[in-house]
Simulated scan of single mutants.
Amino acid sequence: MALTGAMSAGISGLKAHMDALTVVGNNVANVNTAGYKPGRVTFKESIYSTQAAGSDGTDTVGGTNPRQTGYGCSVGTIDLDMSSMNVDSTGNGADVAIQGDGFFLVGDKTGVSLNNLNSLMLTRVGKFRIDNNGYLTDNYGNIVYGFATCNMNGNNKDTAAGLNGDGISTQLVPLRLPLAANGKGTDPANSSVGDAIYPGVDGNGNNDYGTFDDAGSGYECITYNSLSIGADGKVVCVNDKTGDPVTIGYIAMATVPNPAGLTHTEGPYYKAMEGAGKMAINTAGGALAGQYLNNMAADNANASMDTLIGKGSDLLSGFLEQSGTDLATEFANMITYQRGYQANTRIVTVTDSMLEELVNMKR
């Protein structure tokens, strides 16, 4: 029994060290992957078999310690290092790196409700562009979420879409270029062909283009040039047809109490599932800090800490975050895990020799 226990302990050590080496291999493979967060392995002891329980001392004899035999080890944790990394200059004004904590929010075009913020994905890779439908997307086609420029009419609700773009709505939406006036008679008053039409805000605080964005309306997004993103997350460009500057909106950011508790899904994306804590919505540098989501007034019954927009980390325009892999550390870990694996193979082979001797006793 003791020999098979030793064999089991050695095998568990082999498995644990192979898993650890897999983590190292993944870290090294992603040494040039932008925004990559390296994993770190810790081991834990496996189960114990108690051969004799401990006892307390008496008036005549002393106490005894329990006798327990361990059965190897396993991987205890695989943590992600979510700290800020160095950055690389790209020279592209639409590339941004986060200087501190926080994540960009990306998802699909359908939008998100305040009760379902966890459906959005989080990422540290700020490589953005405008797609053929006018949406601000990342390199994999996911839509970047933020706060769009709207016709706020002095921040009063229930305003129609129009030309002013005089405020920023705090409804969290997929960011998109404004529509372009097309001269077909349904444009806002005093508009010229190519002018930017910004959404209004309905009575529920939601962005709304009204009939301009209905299917078959014939409206398309403006054409643009000189797309750039500022340190405060402001997304700006120039209207090709009119030469006017256009503020598309502000990129939203998110933080969670335990970034290392985020669930890594695929590529550069994470989900705020159990273990990460409740997601908080911010803007870089506090551009919209102190306002409430969905254009809620401070006296609204739903205005709370959960719906208050906070101050996030600044962004660095023209840069991308580097991989967090430290090759020197990974090579040192590789040697350590290799030696651990090698030592555990010796346990297996020595145990096998002892079992062979036991079998040969009858001969």
Rank of each mutant, 00 (worst) to 15 (best):
residue 63 G to V: 13
residue 357 E to D: 07
residue 295 N to C: 07
residue 90 T to K: 03
residue 166 D to T: 10
residue 57 G to A: 13
residue 349 T to F: 06
residue 21 L to N: 10
residue 222 I to F: 12
residue 50 T to H: 11
residue 160 A to L: 10
residue 2 A to R: 09
residue 161 A to K: 03
residue 121 M to R: 00
residue 161 A to T: 01
residue 19 D to G: 01
residue 106 V to A: 01
residue 20 A to M: 06
residue 229 I to C: 14
residue 12 S to G: 08
residue 261 G to Y: 01
residue 15 K to G: 08
residue 64 T to V: 12
residue 316 L to E: 04
residue 317 S to L: 08
residue 282 N to K: 04
residue 288 L to P: 03
residue 220 E to R: 14
residue 201 V to D: 11
residue 325 T to G: 09
residue 101 D to E: 13
residue 230 G to V: 01
residue 274 E to I: 06
residue 21 L to Y: 11
residue 227 L to D: 06
residue 65 N to L: 11
residue 203 G to S: 12
residue 50 T to Q: 14
residue 147 F to C: 13
residue 80 L to T: 09
residue 293 L to D: 00
residue 98 I to R: 01
residue 244 D to Y: 03
residue 191 S to F: 15
residue 125 V to A: 02
residue 355 L to P: 00
residue 261 G to A: 04
residue 70 G to D: 09
residue 304 S to A: 06
residue 150 C to R: 06
residue 37 K to N: 01
residue 113 S to A: 09
residue 332 A to D: 14
residue 152 M to Q: 08
residue 295 N to R: 02
residue 130 I to C: 11
residue 132 N to W: 09
residue 227 L to N: 10
residue 220 E to W: 13
residue 166 D to H: 10
residue 362 K to L: 14
residue 16 A to R: 00
residue 199 P to E: 05
residue 234 K to H: 13
